[in-house]
Design a protein around this nucleic acid. Structure first.
Length: 842
DNA sequence: AGATTGTGTCATTAC
DNA sequence: CAGTAATGACACAAT
């Protein structure tokens, strides 16, 4: 426990140190430790108290049924209870709810108040909403239900409201079969088929959706802070992080904007949501650079982009925005809390990173023992990582920036069911888990590592959790529905995923770097690979135009939250990080996507200030397409991505196996060489940035150290003055009590420095002692014997024989007072020596 | 066993 | 800012 706390502290040490640097005196530094689990812990304890009827001070009667609770909790969640409680006696309060409220509607709300999770189903969602509306549950405002209800109760006419992508047109049909609200148990459906699909395509998608709700307005923005402020927070954090992954984390910052900063936002989490994702080539992602390039850029930003006709509703939206702004203060606290949670999450990620590095070190040692050089092994390991990532690039790249979420969070465990992270970063998990695994490529990737990997099908998708904060830490992971599927899923993935490295949490640093690179740089090349379209064998010649629509983005398109993006916390979270996200990039041979097919998530993740979106418009894209074209021309029998992912030996085997022509060999080697070099250049630049950042940090530390030393010097100077003053007073007192004669004082002054307080006792006007001459003047460097003078000696003992004479002896005058002192030392042995003059003086 | 050579990879720089 | 080519250094295997 302590170690965890300290690890968290360690992760913040830099911030703390920087904070110190700003404080003039280190002794006055003030540190702040923000616990991200405290609130959860408190809430959990309150819930336990409620269950045990401990400290409950209110009884809520609904339909004759009584519920014990804490008025403070209810009042903090409900405006209704706030008013009722404040107007009642402090003890024994019994509140009977209006008749229109039911147990079915209130009980989940009560549970929500204590757990941040709302269990709901189609049967009780309306009652819950009514209850929430009447009781004024702040975290379950209409935005939430406006978003959910249409998914549950949309009409059949809105089943397939928008133009579906070609690859899924025939298969992805909206199916709303009675109570099977979200999905069928056995057949995967696109996100549009889920209950959370808003109706689009011109059809009024949500009957209870306010007409003025429109994308970009974020009416349901749970975090009312200005976007700039949020961004600023994120940037501030990232600026404190290692630059090696700064950009990466900057992208994650967007993710965090959707996951971390929006953890408060109610998101849908489906329990037992692990559904089979049978291989469906027709619906498999189309990661083609062209298609997917355009998918992230085009698809994504489409939903983000506010349609022109909706601009006319800006005024109406403004009113809602103002209303939302009113909740800013309340939400601010929660946002800060979640920010702390995000920071802690980052700390854990760093921990895992460290462990991964250790594992890699061990692996390298093992490989080193296998005979080959460590470097070579490392290379091959990287290549393996490349390969693995290439194999997984579909999911990573298809979500592009979404992988940042994965990287910043522990990946597979999230949906894998181990769910440690689910407790650590519940917001994200719920935020993502709210989407059907097979509908969201991100989740699908979490649940389905790749082709050929089967995930055990779970059934029983009947209940959902609407969580505003996260998974209840009190609930054991194993007891949570996700846990049922987790282990199996992970094992399955490990079987099919080579060594299971697709689990990001277990990836080494190198692998992550390579994966990062692949996500950034090789996306285009890999994305066009038909293997990612469901053809694991690789790209088919001539398939460079990626005509197929990526089903991985279908879930976004089908979700199509344009109808109410602000109402969808998930969407909004993704949307927020990117600004307009209107960048469109179109690659040659890539199907142009309409605005309606844009994906806000992808847009937000691939566009933005990090310039990723620009990357899609770079010459490299055309290069990639030229690669594809070139591969087509040379009739390359395997995928270009396959070239990049193979180790050296595997690559050679591949060349041998395929009996390539000279032209083909040159081509693949050229591709491979460029790819390697590209990766190397990226690493080099990253290192350079890292080095610069480290130097900057070093400069900051040195500046702080300089400030600290200067402050310390001032303090020491002040202490010296005080000490001198004290000593001077002491000298004066001693001399006055000893009633030294001026001659004696002069003798003392002789052996005192100019700044010795004793010197001040001797007036410059005092007549010099005859025979002393200038020797009676204070000396700059007194002999060490001065220290032998005891205060007691001065005070109580008889002065030395020499002192008894009015005229010092020649021996004294010649400076041989030492012997005299030594001779008389027996008189002063019992007395502590006076503070050494030279000590105070110097 | 040591030196030489060829090959592959990586880091770096310049464009 | 990113990709690419060129270059040097290094490691490894074969000779």
């Amino acid at each position: 426990m302590m170690s965890e706390d300290f690890s968290s502290l360690d992760n913040r040490c830099e911030q703390m140190s920087l904070a110190m640097s700003s404080v003039e005196s280190p002794r006055s530094s003030v540190f702040t430790f923000q616990s991200s689990v405290h609130s959860c812990h408190v809430l959990r304890c309150l819930d336990e108290q409620r269950r045990r009827d401990l400290l409950c001070d209110i009884t809520v009667v609904v339909e004759g049924q009584s519920f014990r609770a804490h008025r403070s909790v209810l009042a903090s969640c409900s405006e209704y209870f706030t008013h009722r409680v404040s107007s009642h006696a402090p003890q024994g309060l019994v509140i009977t709810l209006p008749q229109e409220l039911s147990v079915m509607g209130f009980e989940p709300l009560l549970q929500f108040a204590y757990t941040s999770k709302l269990l709901f189903s189609k049967d009780n969602i309306l009652e819950i909403r009514q209850c929430a509306s009447i009781l004024g549950f702040r975290d379950l405002d209409s935005a939430c239900f406006d978003f959910l209800l249409p998914k549950f109760f949309r009409t059949s006419s809105s089943k397939l409201p928008f133009q579906r992508k070609s690859c899924c047109k025939t298969r992805c049909r909206a199916e709303d079969h009675g109570s099977e609200v979200l999905v069928e148990d056995t057949e995967p459906k696109p996100f549009s088929d889920s209950a959370v699909e808003p109706v689009v395509g011109g059809v009024p998608c949500q009957s209870n959706q306010p007409a003025n709700d429109k994308p970009g307005r974020h009416g349901g923005n749970p975090d009312p802070r200005p976007e700039a402020e949020i961004q600023s927070d994120a940037q501030t954090d990232y600026s404190l992080q290692c630059p090696k992954y700064r950009k990466f984390q900057l992208a994650c910052g967007k993710e965090r904007a959707c996951s971390g900063l929006n953890l408060d936002s109610p998101v849908v989490t489906k329990m037992c949501c692990l559904l089979p994702r049978p291989p469906n080539p027709a619906c498999l992602p189309c990661p083609g650079r062209g298609g997917c390039r355009q998918t992230p850029g085009g698809n994504t930003s489409q939903l983000l982009h506010r349609p022109v006709e909706e601009q006319g509703r800006a005024d109406e939206e403004q009113g809602r925005a103002d209303e939302e702004q009113g909740r800013a203060d309340e939400e601010q606290g929660r946002a800060d809390e979640e920010q702390g949670r995000a920071d802690e999450e980052q700390g854990r990620a760093d921990e895992e990173q460290g462990r991964a590095d250790e594992e890699q070190g061990r692996a390298d040692e093992e490989q080193g023992r296998e005979g080959k050089g460590g470097r070579r092994m490392l290379d091959e390991r990287k290549i393996e990582a490349d390969k693995r990532n290439i194999n997984q690039t579909g999911e990573r790249d298809e979500c592009s920036g979404v992988d940042c979420v994965l990287s910043s969070l522990p990946p597979m465990e999230v949906c894998g069911g181990k769910s440690n992270r689910s407790q650590e970063c519940p917001g994200f998990i719920e935020g993502t888990a709210g989407i059907e695994a097979h509908q969201c490529p991100l989740l699908a990737r979490l649940l389905d590592p790749g082709p050929g990997l089967q995930i055990p099908a779970n059934v029983g998708v009947r209940a959902y959790v609407l969580g505003s904060r996260g998974v209840d830490p009190a609930i054991p992971v194993s007891s949570q529905p996700q846990g049922q599927r987790g282990k199996e899923g992970v094992e399955e993935r490990e079987q099919g995923g080579e060594r299971g490295e697709y689990r990001w949490g277990g990836r080494s640093r190198v692998e992550r770097e390579v994966a990062e690179h692949l996500a950034q740089g090789l996306w285009s090349e890999l994305s066009c690979s038909p293997r990612l379209h469901g053809s694991p064998q690789g790209m088919e010649p001539g398939s460079g135009n990626c005509q197929g629509r990526s089903p991985s983005t279908d879930w976004l398109n089908q979700l199509d939250m344009r109808s109410n993006p602000g109402r969808c916390p998930f969407h909004h979270a993704l949307d927020r990080g990117t600004g307009s996200g209107t960048e469109e990039s179109q690659l040659p041979g890539c199907e142009v996507s309409s605005n309606s097919e844009r994906s806000p998530c992808l847009s937000s993740l691939t566009s933005g200030d990090d310039g990723d979106s620009d990357g899609f418009d770079t010459e490299g894209d055309s290069e990639v397409c030229s690669y594809i074209q070139r591969a087509k021309e040379v009739q390359l029998p395997f995928s270009v991505s396959r070239i990049l992912g193979l180790s050296r030996n595997e690559f050679q085997l591949l060349l041998r196996h395929h009996n390539l022509t000279r032209e083909q060999q040159d081509f693949v080697q050229d591709i491979r060489r460029r790819s390697k070099n590209r990766i190397a250049a990226q690493r080099c630049r990253k290192r350079k940035l890292d080095c610069i950042h480290n130097l900057e940090c070093e400069i900051d530390k040195l500046k702080a150290e300089r400030e600290r030393l200067m402050s310390e010097g001032k303090q020491l100077s002040q202490m010296q003055l005080n000490a001198q003053h004290t000593v001077s007073s002491l000298y004066q007192r001693v001399c006055s009590e000893a009633a030294l004669r001026p001659e004696q004082l002069q003798v003392l002054a002789k052996y005192s420095s100019a700044d010795c307080p004793l010197s001040a006792l001797i007036s410059s006007t005092d007549p010099p002692i005859p025979g002393l001459g200038g020797l009676l003047q204070p000396l700059a460097c007194p002999p060490p014997t001065c220290s032998l003078i005891s205060s007691d000696h001065l005070k109580h003992s008889e002065p030395p024989a020499s002192f008894s004479n009015d005229t010092p002896t020649e021996e004294e005058l010649s400076g041989d007072w030492t012997s005299t002192q030594a001779h008389d030392s027996d008189q002063v042995t019992d007395a502590p020596p006076i503070e050494q003059c030279d000590q105070h003086r110097c």
